[in-house]
Amino acid sequence: MGKVLVLNASYEPLNITSWRRAVVLLIKGKAEQVEHNGKYIYSGFPLPTVIRLRHYVRVPYKEIPLTRRNLLHRDSHSCQYCGYIGDDLTLDHVIPRSRGGGDSWENIVTACVRCNVRKGNRTPKEANMLLDVAPRKPYSGLYFEVTKHLKNGVNQEWRKYVIGI
């Protein structure tokens, strides 16, 4: 049936849950329906796609791990220099490690082997290779999950509740 985006009372995204859990929260009065897709569970009860909790929930900040998988997802599995999309992508340090560049969201991008070798031990400016998008740290861990759904063409109504998409 689908997944449901759960918003805090302040309309910030909290997580993605199953439609069954969302319906339970609605029936118990702990949440209200914000969006639905036109499908009905039964007459007069539309299937929710976005719900909002009635009471604010404090969520501790959670650091997003800097992993190859997360970097590939952030960069849409494409070379940030030439736009190549494929499986044989590498990770490139914008400012090379030998020049003091560290491992951070703002300094690592995905690159095809050809561009990575061409850039070598230089900065993009020195190699005359411009980045398509400046690398940045994602807003939240939920960002990854939501963008997967949006890229598949599902749940486009979530777009207005998530910053940076």
Rank of each mutant, 00 (worst) to 15 (best):
V6K: 13
L7D: 01
L53F: 02
K39R: 14
N116V: 02
K28Y: 13
K62H: 15
A111C: 07
T110N: 10
Y61A: 09
K160Q: 11
E63N: 12
C79A: 00
V133K: 15
V133M: 15
L89C: 06
V6H: 05
Y40E: 15
K125S: 13
K30R: 13
N152Q: 11
V50Q: 00
L142Y: 01
Y61H: 15
V24H: 11
K30E: 12
I41Y: 06
N70V: 05
L47R: 10
V146Y: 07
E32I: 04
K151D: 14
N152F: 14
K160P: 03
L53W: 00
P96C: 10
S76V: 02
S18V: 08
R20C: 11
L14C: 06
P60Q: 04
K137W: 04
L130E: 09
T110D: 10
C115S: 09
I64D: 06
K30D: 14
V113I: 09
W105K: 03
D87G: 07
N70T: 03
F144I: 01
H77R: 10
S43P: 07
L72M: 13
H77N: 15
S140V: 03
V34E: 00
I95H: 10
V133T: 13
R74D: 04
N15Q: 10
D103W: 14
G29H: 02
P135E: 04
L47E: 15
N8C: 00
E126A: 13
L130V: 11
L91I: 13
N152W: 15
L5V: 01
C115P: 08
V4W: 03
K3M: 04
Y161T: 01
Y56H: 15
Y42Q: 14
N116K: 07
R21K: 12
T123M: 08
G86V: 04
C112G: 04
T49H: 02
P96D: 05
L89G: 05
H36V: 06
P138D: 06
N37F: 11
E106R: 07
V57C: 12
K125D: 12
D87M: 04
L47D: 02
R58D: 13
V133L: 10
D103H: 09
V146E: 11
W105S: 06
N152C: 11
R21V: 03
V162P: 01
P135D: 05
V24K: 13
P13N: 09
L131I: 03
L131W: 03
S43C: 08
S104I: 07
S43N: 10
Y11S: 01
W19I: 08
L25Q: 01
R122K: 15
L150G: 05
V117R: 10
N128I: 02
I108G: 08
D75M: 02
N116Y: 07
R58C: 11
S10E: 14
Y40G: 07
P65M: 02
I85Q: 15
Y61T: 12
L71F: 01
A22G: 03
A111T: 04
R97P: 00
A127T: 02
P124V: 09
Y42N: 14
L7H: 00
D87N: 09
K151L: 09
H55S: 15
V23Y: 11
A22F: 00
I165P: 01
N152E: 14
K119R: 13
K125G: 13
G102Y: 07
N121R: 09
R20N: 12
T147V: 13
V6F: 07
I16A: 08
Y11K: 02
